[in-house]
């Protein structure tokens, strides 16, 4: 066992403050002014060092792992990849997916006639993506769900479809991470 128990050092604190806390005050001033000039310099040379992001003019850089709202993959022929198997509906802990399956004459004969996700309830957990056996539902980097009414947060199939090439980054990530 490589862990040790150590006592925190409190004596050092009183010493660090110096007589009449002069040193403590100087140190505080030094820290804050260093931050100030660092940020000022960053602003002058156009490389901001502050953490604030001017949303919505700018957006944060999202890692490939980013889980935004779930969307449906739209294949090149304009149809969804989903076969309405209902696994995502099962896996969803908050039951926010609603699917009505139907059949067509196409090569893939099953498709969802209705595919609704209640984005007001969805918690972006990604369990639907993990459950889907067809890679048909993936987490996108969309996060804006604001709507003017409760009905507005109910997203239908047409709102959810995203062309496959716009999801390339996520699909690659999904393939890598679920490949084990």
């Amino acid at each position: 066992m490589a862990s040790r128990v150590v006592k925190v050092d409190r004596e050092a604190l009183a010493k660090a403050a110096g007589p009449f806390s002069v040193r403590a005050i100087m140190v505080g001033l030094r820290v804050t002014s260093r931050h100030f000039f660092r940020n000022l310099w960053g602003w002058i040379i156009g490389k901001p060092t502050i953490a604030t992001v001017m949303y919505p003019e700018e957006d944060v850089v999202k890692p490939p792992a980013f889980r935004g709202m779930p969307v449906l993959v739209e294949m090149d022929n304009g149809k969804e990849r989903c076969v309405a198997c209902g696994l995502c509906e099962w896996a969803c802990p908050v039951d926010c997916i609603h699917i009505v399956p139907d059949e067509t004459e196409d090569a893939i004969e099953r498709y969802p006639q209705l595919f609704d996700i209640d984005m007001g309830r969805c918690m972006y957990c990604g369990l639907c993506e993990e459950a889907c056996p067809e890679e048909a539902i993936v987490m996108s980097d969309r996060v804006e769900i604001a709507a003017f009414s409760r009905e507005g947060t109910l997203w239908h199939k047409d709102d959810l479809l995203v062309p496959v090439d716009r999801l390339a980054r996520r699909l690659e990530y999904v393939r890598r991470s679920y490949e084990r």
Binding site: S3, V5, V6, K7, V8
Partner: peptide, 21 residues
């Protein structure tokens, strides 16, 4: 955790400063 090398800090009086430290 048994392979990790780390210290467990403890305080003495148990006042807020110790908790913070």
């Amino acid at each position: 955790y048994d392979r990790m090398d780390f210290d467990v800090p403890i305080g003495e009086s148990g006042d807020n400063m110790d908790r913070f430290l």
